[in-house]
Design a protein around this nucleic acid. Structure first.
Lengths: 125, 125
DNA sequence: CGGCTGAATCGACAGCCGTCGATACAGCAT
DNA sequence: ATGCTGTATCGACGGCTGTCGATTCAGCCG
């Protein structure tokens, strides 16, 4: 934690940002990317992320994030930690409340990776 | 299986294709999307997908996909099944060999979901 | 200071997931 | 037909993951 610290650092390595349709992923890139996708691989975390991202001001207090779900507060806290450790969100305590915001560069990286350059080649069959 | 069957069906529902930064995901969309992300949440499957996508002709035989990995053939077969059941790839047997190809619409859907409309708002701190 | 609220951590537990070897199935070749 | 190669399925097992209640920590307020 300790404020946002390495917010914009984000290992902009190289290879792992181009569409995967271009060239095979290396083992290292695949490992790092799979950690990010793993963070997205849960319905609650997906909804948390979209809730944070679409919240006014681009950030949300944890107290705003507990209500919409049927799980306990510690569970939400756990999911937020997963998102944070995957580099998808940042967080900061401001007085009584803790705020979370999305790190757009991380999402953009994944989005670019999944981009498909052209249109279907097989869909007709 | 039975050939590609519902290849182009892809529940183009609606909400779940716009950037999640726009509005919160519904529970149903989040559940479906998390299934797709779960399929991407493994380094071997990511590499398989990129290997298939970047293979000449846009498709690859399973026999091309076993060599690059240190896991057994049944494990590769399992991962391919996960990708197929997530709707990310299609497959077809042609004679002795089975071929896999990426379904670009699925990737595009996820890519669009992760798109970030603007630039960072918080990076200045 | 004492108590209160918001959030994170801890420890435990059930269920899921990746992996394997063994086996079954499909198609070609002899 | 018989055997061989390529691929999928099966059953088992260890490790990871999501969840909870209980607890702890942080900051505000009286």
């Amino acid at each position: 934690m300790s404020k946002q610290a390495d917010l914009t650092v984000l290992g902009q390595d190289a290879a792992c940002c181009a569409p995967m349709v271009r060239e095979p992923l290396g083992e290292v890139d695949a490992a790092e990317l799979s950690r990010m996708f793993k963070a997205l691989a849960d319905p609650i975390r997906l909804r948390l992320l979209s809730l944070i991202a679409s919240h006014e001001g681009g950030e949300a207090c944890v107290c705003d994030l507990i209500g919409p779900f049927d799980v306990s507060q510690p569970t939400i806290s756990h999911h937020l930690k997963v998102l944070r450790e995957a580099g998808l969100v940042g967080s900061e305590r401001r007085g009584t409340w803790v705020y979370y915001w999305v790190l757009p560069e991380a999402l953009a990286k994944l989005s670019a990776l999944l981009q498909t350059p052209a249109v279907p080649a097989k869909a007709s069959a």
